[in-house]
């Protein structure tokens, strides 16, 4: 299942590493990454592939949110279909 991970907040060291480690620990493959820092604000979008056999998307989403709280960033993990539906005719 394809999902989108979004990370935003004030830029600091180690964010990409911590988010990537969380994904790797859950067997999630990163398919695409786009990341920028503008005026000290960090923004990253990852398209990832979630294995069917692992945790549910709802649980992963909650764990990603909690990780965001721990590292002081806003992290979201959502089913990719919502973006595809909204932005494609």
């Amino acid at each position: 299942m394809r999902a989108v991970v979004t990370v935003s907040g004030t830029d600091r060291k180690g964010v990409v590493a911590q988010v990537s480690a969380f994904l790797a620990d859950n067997g999630i493959n990163i398919e695409d990454v786009s990341q920028t820092v503008l005026g000290g604000q960090f923004a990253m979008v990852m398209v990832v592939d979630i294995p069917e056999s692992g945790k549910t998307l709802a649980l992963l989403s909650e764990e990603a949110r909690r990780l965001g709280e721990e590292i002081g960033m806003s992290i979201g993990l959502r089913h990719a279909d919502i973006f595809t539906a909204m932005h494609n005719v």
């Binding site: 989108v4 979004t6 979008v45 919502i82 973006f83 595809t84 932005h87």
Partner: peptide, 11 residues
């Protein structure tokens, strides 16, 4: 599929 800006627009 969708761009980074579109992702953040949705959020």
């Amino acid at each position: 599929m969708f761009t980074k800006n579109q992702v953040f627009e949705t959020i």
